[in-house]
Amino acid sequence: MPNVVRRPRQCRPLRQSERTRDHARSDLLHWPSEAIAVATGLPRTAVQSALRSGVESPKKQTGRKPIITRKVRERLVARATLDAAHHRMTYTEITWLEGVQAGKP
C-alpha cells in the first residue's frame, strides 16, 4: 500500500541571485518553469512561486530624504543638554544657535 500521507519537502528559500537568474531564464530565454527547476535543482513549486512573486532584485528605497542628518541631530542634542539654560530653550532657538535651517521657514 502506498504512503498516503504527503510529507512537505525540505527546501531552502531562494536567494535573491537565484530569483534573478530564474527571471532571466523565464523572460529572456522563454524557459518554462519545469525546465528552470531541472536546471537549478530546485522544486518546481519554488520556481513557480519565485516567478509569480515578480521580485527580481531589491528596489531602491523611495521617499523623502531626511531633513536633519544623524550628525546634525547629535549636534542639536548635545547643545540642548549642555546646561540648564539650554534645557529651557525651544527647539527653534536651539536650531537657530546651531545655524541649522529646519522646520517652518
Rank of each mutant, 00 (worst) to 15 (best):
M1K: 05
M1G: 11
M1E: 05
P2A: 07
P2V: 07
N3F: 03
V4R: 13
V4L: 14
V4I: 15
V5Y: 09
R6H: 10
R6N: 06
R6D: 09
R7S: 04
R7A: 09
R7V: 09
P8N: 11
R9Y: 03
R9G: 01
R9H: 06
Q10D: 10
Q10G: 08
Q10L: 07
Q10M: 06
R12Y: 04
R12S: 13
R12E: 07
R12C: 06
P13L: 03
L14S: 05
R15G: 09
R15N: 04
Q16S: 10
Q16I: 09
S17M: 09
S17P: 02
R19L: 06
R19S: 03
R21K: 13
R21T: 08
D22E: 10
D22G: 10
H23R: 04
A24D: 08
R25M: 14
R25K: 10
D27W: 07
D27N: 09
D27S: 11
L28V: 09
L29D: 14
L29E: 15
H30Q: 14
H30K: 12
W31Q: 02
P32Q: 05
P32N: 13
P32Y: 06
P32G: 13
A35G: 07
A35P: 00
A35C: 02
A37K: 02
V38K: 14
V38S: 10
T40K: 04
G41C: 01
L42K: 13
L42G: 01
P43W: 01
R44A: 12
T45L: 08
A46Q: 07
A46R: 03
A46L: 14
V47P: 00
V47N: 00
V47R: 00
Q48A: 13
Q48R: 12
S49P: 01
A50I: 02
L51E: 02
R52I: 06
R52T: 11
R52P: 03
S53W: 05
S53A: 15
G54W: 02
V55N: 09
E56P: 04
P58G: 05
P58W: 04
P58R: 08
K59T: 14
K60V: 12
Q61S: 15
Q61P: 12
T62M: 10
T62G: 14
G63W: 02
R64P: 06
K65V: 12
P66A: 14
I67F: 13
I67V: 15
I67D: 13
T69D: 13
T69L: 08
K71Q: 14
V72R: 11
R73Y: 08
E74I: 10
L76C: 06
A78P: 03
A78G: 10
A78H: 11
R79P: 02
R79T: 06
R79S: 01
A80T: 05
A80D: 03
T81C: 15
L82R: 15
L82K: 15
D83H: 04
D83L: 03
A84D: 13
A85G: 11
A85I: 07
H86T: 09
H86D: 04
H87W: 13
H87Y: 14
M89W: 08
M89Q: 07
T90P: 03
T90A: 08
T95R: 13
T95Y: 07
T95Q: 11
W96N: 14
W96A: 15
L97Y: 04
L97K: 06
E98M: 06
G99A: 00
G99V: 00
V100Y: 02
V100N: 01
Q101E: 11
A102Y: 01
K104A: 09
K104D: 08
K104R: 15
P105K: 06
